[in-house]
Amino acid sequence: MSNENWQLYEIFIRSAKGLSHRHVGSVHAADPEMAIEAARDIYTRRNEGVSIWAVPSSAITASDPDAAEELFEPAKSKIYRHPTFYEIPEGVENM
């Protein structure tokens, strides 16, 4: 018996204003405040962050890798969603 019910939290760090939070790893903490403090000490000690999210790992729902085909394959054929699908007459620039 080690961590007496400390929870696992997933940690997301915003490295600079204007960027999204990005997953960096996890910490063990008894409460959310401790999770933030631990994340600060572990993941931002070289100035890597301006904001931290701590989310209980148990609250994350992940997609099933076995369902990857049905989830993600259909998007591959929808090439008309990309600008490169369209032809623009020569001489027209910057569209």
Binding site: H28, M34, E37, D41
Partner: peptide, 11 residues
């Protein structure tokens, strides 16, 4: 007392 606290006391 906990691994996370190793980081805290060093800081």
């Amino acid at each position: 007392p906990a691994l996370e606290l190793e980081m805290a006391v060093s800081n």
